[in-house]
Design a protein around this nucleic acid. Structure first.
Lengths: 183, 183
DNA sequence: CTTTTCGTACTGACCGGTCAGTATTATATC
DNA sequence: GATATAATACTGACCGGTCAGTACGAAAAG
């Protein structure tokens, strides 16, 4: 059985994935989590704190998943693994990803900004991966690593928008990255 | 000189580009537009109406820009033009794009959803473009057009996130699309 | 005189946050 | 093992601030 705290975060995630921050009332969260409103404030100092905790823990989970061993692979294989894992994560935790994606453009508070610096390390991971790929000679030397990592993340993020399954998207992304679109 | 109505929409755009919907008060908009609060309600039925009008007109502008003549070009050149124009639009109307991007994940009302179906025609344009490219033999026949157009839009959207200039991003995007990342 | 704009005051729903009290579980005392 | 004490977890009615929207008279604008 879930602890109350986890039940709260879970309910909140589902609600925040459907509506933006200010349209989700603490009463709604309490109701969905089958918990009294006061309990929310027992576990979290404020609505914002709850929200940040939710993002924080989700991001931590993601980083954990992305960092697990990938030894004995060249940069290309690593890149494919990275993309696939990200896609997997987004299927598994679709609601969380929805929240993450929505939040990214907002960041209207200090606490949230701090929290998101961590998320940027996803980008850093990719950055490192690409740099290594160039050094190893598997990737073109004239790639702008900064721009490219940003673009690849953009490609992956697009996966949640549409109606296409994430697996197919991961494959297509990798395919385009490898061969381009030209005939 | 701007009409009052335009001044209002302009002020609102700038405010909504910095903060999400519910953190922008009608009083703020009135103040920034140097207009009495009542004037807002003279031109727009409600806050939501104002917001929708703002998005509506912005999207109309964008579509107008994307649709202008591109005759005598093959699909690849057209694709490049498409990407460049989108990037240009986002530099020119950065504030509006910020609002657009933030809104995309939200859509918490009927009116907004209607408004956004129009925005989807940006995707349709790209879809058509790719299909034609394949027919003409400039693009690989085994591309999943649906997935690919979604991915390309994702690439372009990534341009606003980061610190990189949009022009460089547009170039990098087109480059990756043409040649892939492999050495 | 009709339309548009202004300024200011006002209303009321809604929602984040509080708090006094209750339930539950753990720990000590006889 | 029964009883008292403490610590923690939880409850929900209530309060106070905020803000969309209204009211209205005056006054520019055309």
């Amino acid at each position: 059985m879930l602890t109350k705290r986890d039940a709260i975060l879970d309910a909140a995630t589902r609600l925040f994935s459907k509506k933006p921050y200010h349209l989700v009332a603490m009463d709604d969260i309490a109701k969905k989590a089958k918990v009294a409103k006061g309990t929310l404030y027992y576990h979290f100092r404020s609505k914002e704190d709850l929200y940040v905790a939710l993002l924080q823990e989700g991001i931590d989970n993601l980083l954990l998943k992305l960092k697990t061993e990938s030894s004995g692979m060249n940069a290309l294989e690593n890149l494919q693994l990275f993309i696939t894992r990200l896609a997997e994560f987004f299927i598994e935790k679709k609601d969380f990803f929805e929240v993450l994606k929505r939040e990214e453009g907002n960041l209207f508070s200090k606490k949230l900004k701090n929290c998101f610096e961590k998320a940027c390390s996803v980008k850093d991971l990719l950055h490192t991966l690409l740099t290594r790929g160039i050094a190893e000679g598997h990737l073109r030397g004239n790639l702008d690593v900064q721009a490219t990592s940003q673009i690849i993340l953009g490609m992956i993020k697009s996966s949640v928008n549409g109606t296409i399954e994430a697996k197919k998207l991961a494959d297509t992304i990798f395919d385009i990255l490898l061969h381009g679109v030209k005939a």
